[in-house]
């Protein structure tokens, strides 16, 4: 499923126009992205949480050639699956 499919599905489920549904879906993910950019955590019970981890600069190596590479400090967002979703996905796989 991609964002367009989600917009269509939400319009149907929540009885919204496509335009309104699109506005909401964009707003939800923009709001979440802004929170992460500000360094805030996101916690949605039953679904999961998102947070940004910060990594310091380090000297890495190209594993093929062995050349040293200076890796700059960076931040990366992570998702941790919530309990309810984790259990339901796990069970569905059996």
């Amino acid at each position: 499923m991609n964002k367009s499919d989600l917009i269509v599905a939400l319009a149907k489920e929540a009885d919204l126009t496509q335009r309104k549904s699109e506005e909401i879906v964009n707003l939800v993910f923009d709001t979440m992205a802004s929170a992460l950019v500000s360094g805030d955590r996101i916690e949605i019970r039953g679904f999961g949480s998102l947070m940004v981890k910060k990594y310091g600069a380090y000297t890495g190596r190209n594993p093929k050639s062995g050349t040293r590479i200076e890796v700059e400090e960076k931040k990366l967002p992570f998702f941790k699956t919530g309990k309810e979703l984790r259990e339901r996905v796990q069970q569905a796989g059996r």
């Binding site: 499923m1 991609n2 964002k3 989600l6 599905a9 939400l10 489920e13 929540a14 919204l16 909401i24 879906v25 939800v28 993910f29 979440m32 992205a33 949605i44 039953g46 679904f47 967002p77 998702f79 979703l85 339901r88 996905v89 569905a92 796989g93």
Partner: peptide
């Protein structure tokens, strides 16, 4: 509306389907 949006995403994942939101993840 937020609950419904999350339920749609969860249902797809439980169904084994991937969910891709461009620009987000």
């Amino acid at each position: 509306i937020v609950e419904k949006l999350l339920d749609i995403i969860k249902a797809r994942l439980i169904n084994g389907e991937d969910v891709m939101i461009s620009g987000f993840g």
